[in-house]
Design a protein around this nucleic acid. Structure first.
Ligand SMILES: NC(=O)c1ccc[n+]([C@@H]2O[C@H](COP(=O)([O-])OP(=O)(O)OC[C@H]3O[C@@H](n4cnc5c(N)ncnc54)[C@H](O)[C@@H]3O)[C@@H](O)[C@H]2O)c1
Ligand SMILES: NC(=O)c1ccc[n+]([C@@H]2O[C@H](COP(=O)([O-])OP(=O)(O)OC[C@H]3O[C@@H](n4cnc5c(N)ncnc54)[C@H](O)[C@@H]3O)[C@@H](O)[C@H]2O)c1
Lengths: 233, 233
DNA sequence: CATTAACTGTGAAATTTTTCACAATTATTT
DNA sequence: AAATAATTGTGAAAAATTTCACAGTTAATG
């Protein structure tokens, strides 16, 4: 595996989101975008976007980029087709972030939130494969109609191991979150996206956890609003 | 309104999350925590936590903090009661972030995700007041049983204006997201938490938008995993 | 075909954020 | 009452990230 120098975390995270945006722009039938346009769409300054994209140059293979040479991802100049060609930019970012081969995921907890996630179109797009979903309630499992394979929660470890599931999405009640996370980790999961309002303790430092916290978002939003209020008067 | 110098954004966001955590620790009956413990829980280095907390000193009122003096939020020394007293730390952060007076919020789109959010305990805690929830479907509105006032989506602008709602939580289908955001903005909303997989265009720079993007989180997680794989071999 | 307009790409500077390292503090133990 | 252990708070140094500014590029235009 190629040992590209790692990206600055803020750049990595912006590129990961940019990747999503590029897909949407492609679906709109566009061919190219300028850093200025991306800037408006993403709320990130245009020079930051250009700087981020400049990291795509590294480890570009055998093309022998020598010192001063330009990456040549984007096309300068005026006119409609100018800017970054969506397709090739998306491919480059995908390669850089390792989004080229599909990842397997599972979903634990099929309540309201779990079902909302189950229904997302993202699972039809092929980049992420939702290969299993679990719940404790037999009833719940019977009622749901979906193409995703459903299992009782007791089968969690077995299924995760069997399919070598890499990512777990946690949508169980708060009381069950830590225990479920422990089970996922024991079964060899590599990353968890946690929606439960709980601070998970995950000892293994091989396992990455990302928290999606409504309370956190509300507080962050309020704090920024408060700072605005301070300034405005 | 006091003109405290604004916090560094990373500090603001960490404090906003820390605030949530402190509430949970209090519910566990604890009295105090050390920066080391918080570090483990939050995945943030302990010195970063101490540095963040040092910003709480600014604008602490009439206590005349002169130069070298310590804030005195946390208590040094060994023993069980040492560290930061939960209660007072939480109050200080709350004051700094403007989390002291309740904010009003509304929820638009009562599908699976909307109902999951409607059911969250956070609305019972008093810091955020969910004063309205909207949907397009009369049917849906009739079936739901909740204490939160429900309205038909056509009443959106009127209700948001009437109750001076500050925060809008967007859980409508992607097709309806931009239009709904426009309506919220027109009605004077101050912030939006957007769950729809859409990049919202919000012209007014008085309105803050925070996106909760599953696809984004999946990509970020995958990219970090990929970097790990690169290094590990 | 020269000019213009609208872009990209990037090294270097500026700024922000994190890390460091240790003096100061206080309950507990000896 | 001294020694010990654990912990805060912070200025200064280091590191990371963002911003700047402009040379260079390209299609369209006159
Ligand atoms: N972060 C956010 O934005 C956000 C938004 C909404 C809800 N939430 C949280 O998401 C979680 C789910 O919310 P919901 O409204 O869908 O709850 P819910 O009660 O409707 O669903 C929970 C489901 O998990 C199942 N379950 C319980 N224990 C389990 C276990 N050990 N293993 C597998 N399945 C188990 C239950 O049978 C149920 O079907 C809650 O923790 C909620 O607080 C987070
Ligand atoms: N970010 C995340 O983590 C995440 C997770 C799950 C779902 N989602 C997204 O959240 C949204 C909702 O998901 P869901 O599963 O609840 O969908 P859903 O189809 O079950 O519910 C959507 C609801 O919105 C209502 N609605 C439609 N147009 C409306 C309008 N103009 N005004 C008011 N209400 C309107 C519908 O009547 C329906 O009740 C979708 O966009 C989905 O992609 C995001």
């Amino acid at each position: 595996m190629k040992k590209d120098s790692t990206l600055p975390p803020p750049t990595l995270e912006r590129l990961a989101r940019l990747y999503v945006l590029l897909g949407k722009l492609q679906n709109q039938g566009l061919q190219a975008v300028s850093s200025k346009r991306l800037s408006e769409l993403l709320g990130v300054p245009d020079h930051t976007i250009r700087k981020d994209l400049s990291f795509l140059r590294e480890g570009l293979g055998t093309e022998q980029l020598t010192g001063k040479e330009k990456t040549g991802v984007g096309k300068p100049g005026s006119g409609l087709g100018r800017g970054y060609p969506l397709e090739s930019l998306r491919v480059l970012i995908g390669a850089k972030l390792g989004l080229t081969h599909p990842r397997t995921a599972c979903l634990v907890g099929l309540g309201n939130l779990g079902v909302a996630i189950l229904n997302r179109r993202i699972w039809q797009e092929g980049v992420y494969r939702l290969v299993a979903a679990f719940d404790l309630s037999e009833n719940r499992l019977e009622l749901l109609s979906t193409k995703i394979p459903l299992y009782h929660a007791r089968e969690l470890e077995g299924v995760v191991r069997k399919y070598r599931i890499e990512i777990g999405i946690l949508t169980v009640p708060p009381e069950a979150a830590q225990e479920t996370a422990d089970r996922l980790v024991r079964a060899g999961i590599r990353g968890i996206i946690n929606f439960a309002p709980v601070v998970l303790t995950v000892k293994s430092n091989r396992v990455l956890v990302r928290n999606v916290s409504l309370a956190g978002e509300l507080n962050i939003l309020s704090a920024y609003l408060y700072q605005q209020e301070d300034v405005d008067g």
